[in-house]
Design a protein around this nucleic acid. Structure first.
Lengths: 143, 143
DNA sequence: TATACACTTAGAGCCTACTCTAAGGTTTGC
DNA sequence: GCAAACCTTAGAGTAGGCTCTAAGTGTATA
């Protein structure tokens, strides 16, 4: 199966502009053009774009994704490097998840706080921001 | 306890430039200035900045954070709105976590793939990208 | 008193990642 | 054979979020 840029864009939730931009930036080096000059996406190219999306959405800058592509193009000598790259990315994702978890606790505190405040019709200065005060004390090391 | 902009920056892992930028953008409307014109951070102001960081790091644009501040300044009538704002932010974080989880699966697949490839010293085209092929088929609806 | 190191402002510059426009070529269906 | 709906390029513009500079003021220590 072969796909046009528009079909791929639609399926992956990107715009055709964005995909062409990625191509211009060297992120899609394997794409061929048909006789009319239009990009033809083979299944492998779609798989590739899915990986680009995955790396981008987990916080890897396009420049670094490009480096990965260059590693791929250099052949089997870079397999170990590529392996390590994905291991690092995994650690990065784990960090992001635990960071999100940490922020979730603050948000939950705020929800509890505003839940109370809404119930009483006003901010309760006595219970206000207990969690935050604890966090500030942790950062600054005193009460 | 009172803090200078430099002390706060160091503790929160921001630069003084960034904090001044936030102030300029209206994100720190409560900060007072000392006799020499320097910003004086009270404990409440630090707590406030911690919340700004929390919202920003969980993907809220500075503009929207500013709207929250404006709600805070409008008093008790906006308590319900603020409550809902944090509830929405919680949902957003949950979505981010499940998205990360989804991408983590792809990364794990790639790690397994490269683990194999490193072991054999070359890409194995037979097992290559099985997961990705499945994903592509899911998106495009055929084999 | 000198020197270092804070702090201040206004405003320019930068980076990433798009996003869009203009002008045009190709393909598809009636 | 022509309109609609694709596709192409080069390149300009935009948004968000900093990041830095210049020029200056204030404070603290030797």
């Amino acid at each position: 199966m072969r796909y046009s840029i528009g079909q791929v864009a639609k399926k992956l939730g990107l715009t055709t502009h964005t995909i062409r931009y990625y191509d211009k930036e060297g992120l899609l080096p394997f794409i061929r053009k048909g006789s009319s000059g239009a990009r033809v996406f083979e299944e492998d190219d779609v798989d590739w774009l899915i990986i680009v999306e995955c790396l981008k959405r987990t916080g890897m800058p396009l420049k670094e994704i490009k480096k990965y592509i260059q590693l791929c193009q250099q052949g089997d000598e870079t397999l170990q490097t590529r392996f390590e790259m994905f291991q690092k990315q995994k650690v990065k994702i784990e960090e992001q998840m635990s960071t999100l978890q940490k922020y979730m606790e603050k948000i939950n505190f705020k929800i509890a706080y505003y839940g109370d405040a809404v119930k009483h019709g006003t901010d309760d200065i006595y219970t206000r921001n207990k969690w935050l005060a604890a966090e500030r004390e942790r950062l600054f090391g005193h009460k």
